[in-house]
Each structure stands twice: as C-alpha cells, then as structure tokens.
Amino acid sequence: MLNKNVKEIIEKSKSLGWILEPDAKAIMKFQGFEIPDYILTHSIKDADTFFKKSNSPVVAKAVSKKILHKTEHQAVVTGIASSNRLNSEMERLKKLDGCENILVEQMVQGLEVIIGAKNDFQFGPVIVFGIGGTSVEIYNDTAIRMAPLKSSDVHSMIDSLKAKDLITGYRGGQGVNMERLTHLLVNFSNLIMELENEVESVDLNPVICTKDQCIIADARIILQRP
C-alpha cells in the first residue's frame, strides 16, 4: 500500500508535472531506500554547519521548479571540500532561475548506476538498469525488463551489460552489494507498479553503489499529464 505521505507529495506536484528532487527522494526514503544525509536550506550558516559535521566533501544543488535537468543549468556542484567554496557556490546557485532552496548533501563515492522506470504504451511499466551518470545516453549500456521484476530478472539484467564486471567486481575490486542492489531494483519495480496511474517516467540517476550500500544520489519523477 502506498504511504499517505507519498500520495500527498504526488498530489501537490501534479500542477508542476514533475516532482522536485527533495520530494522525489523523500518518496524513496519512505520506501526504505537509502538516500545521502542532507540539509535543505537557504542559510549558508546552516549549510556550513552541515558540511563541518559531515566531515567529508558535499554536493550542493539548486532546487527550482524551473530546472528539470540540473546539469544543463550548472545547478549541481560536486566535491565541495571547503567552507569558502560552499559559500561562493551557494551564492551562485541562489541566483539561478526559480531557485527556492539549496540541497546540500553528503557526497558518496562508488559505481554510478541508473535505475529508471517508464510507463510504456504497449507494455505498461518497464524498468531500466545500467551504467549511470550524466553520459548515460552516450554509453547506453542498459537493460530493460517489464515490471514487476523477479530477482532472476535483476541477474539477467546485470549479465547483459557490457560493464557487468564493474558491478560484479573487476581487477581485484569488490563489486557492488548484490543483495542491496537486487532488493532496491525489485522493490523499486513494485513501487512503480503501484504508481502506474500517476507516473510517466522516473530517473534514479545516479544511484551510487558500493560493496556495502546503494544510495540514491538523485531522483526525478515525471508525472503523467492529466
């Protein structure tokens, strides 16, 4: 059953047609998926306190109803490792078109994958999984399956990728936590089945996978047109 809060987020986003990143991530968190520690703020002081407490580089992103694709608008800054840089980038982000808030979050490192969903005209909800990041359309190393997924579907998706060795472990690398990844994909596909009448497409990109966890670093949910 869908969480009441999830329904509320969808309702309030309908007029915009898509769900803002903090809200989209909140939906993922309600499902029990992992997202990075974050703070949503205007205040440079609060952001700086968050940065100092997190003891690692952070990412800052503009939250704007006018910016659907953040990279194209230079609305994402990764690897912020000093208070000065955080300060200046926040000042810049605030001036971007329609910026309501700044999302500052812990920067996680690992293999970037994309987990996506699309409500296909002929087949209904389908899940996309593959190598993620901003160049995803260039490499297009992805697999597609009809939702809901079984865990055997997850294995065959990984197996069909050119970059499967990056996921399973390569040159002594440990690979990603398969149990977490399978759990995330299967449960994400179940969520998409429940949201079938609301959602047009979803990008969880990147999802950062390590040997311990799979963290959704960015989420975009496009709603169906009424």
């Binding site: 994309i114 359309e137 597609i144």
Partner: peptide, 15 residues
C-alpha cells in the same frame, strides 16, 4: 524527452 529513462527505453528496445 523529459527523462534519461524515456530516451533510453525507446519503443523497439522495450519490445
């Protein structure tokens, strides 16, 4: 195309 997924999952690839 509004999302990466929609652009990756064209009709024929999905089929």
């Amino acid at each position: 195309v509004s999302s990466h997924t929609a652009s990756l999952a064209g009709d024929y690839r999905v089929f």
